[in-house]
């Protein structure tokens, strides 16, 4: 009886994982501009991460980065460095820190902050050109960021 009502409560608030989620305003960096803990307390799914990175309406990371492993995503840009070997160059925590807010690592970077919801100049409502109201939805959800980080850690130069 008691067990059922607990389950019910969990359903009502969405999920237990959601309750544990680190929100965009609660993210904590360590001294090495890394975020050590998973934002959701769960491991990311690298297969999903690959899709998010190549999808225009999601991460669209290929707009600026070439990634050999994602060669099925056409027209990869070169505003940022090639991400091949990123999993060798950076720890998972550093990669998480980079995707959440690359400006912590690279001052003034043109890479967007994928987990930022306010503090923008003339924030818009997505790509409508109309005003948006802060807090905006982050560009990627906590779990999507975990998925992207999981994929990035697989990018090793053999």
């Amino acid at each position: 009886m008691k067990l059922t009502s607990v389950t019910l409560a969990a359903v009502l608030i969405g999920s237990t994982a959601f309750a544990a989620e680190v929100g965009p305003k609660e993210v904590k960096y360590n001294d090495d501009t890394a975020i050590e803990m998973s934002l959701t307390g769960m491991a990311g799914d690298p297969t999903k991460g690959a899709v998010i990175m190549g999808t225009k309406s999601k991460g669209n990371c290929v707009a600026c980065h070439e990634i050999t492993a994602l060669s099925n995503a056409p027209f990869q840009g070169n505003v940022g460095p090639i991400l091949d070997g990123a999993g060798d160059r950076w720890s998972a925590g550093e990669l998480r820190g980079l995707v959440v807010n690359a400006k912590m690592m690279f001052e003034g970077s043109v890479m967007p902050s994928f987990y930022q919801v306010d503090g923008f100049t003339r924030p818009g409502n997505a790509y409508t050109g109309k005003a948006g109201k802060e807090p905006l939805a982050p560009l990627l959800s906590a779990q999507e960021i975990e998925d992207v980080v999981a994929f990035l850690t697989t990018l090793k130069d053999e």
């Binding site: 225009k56 669209n60 290929v62 707009a63 600026c64 056409p74 027209f75 990869q76 840009g77 070169n78 505003v79 043109v110 967007p112 902050s113 930022q116 923008f120 100049t121 003339r122 924030p123 818009g124 948006g132 905006l136 560009l139």
Partner: peptide
């Protein structure tokens, strides 16, 4: 030079710092 929007980019981000580069299919 003012960076705007959720992507936080200015005219200079694309047309001064990155002209000649590709942003997806576009040659800046």
């Amino acid at each position: 030079y003012t960076r705007t929007g959720q992507l936080d980019l200015s005219c200079a981000s694309c047309h001064e710092q990155n002209y000649g580069n590709m942003i997806r299919a576009d040659h800046l």
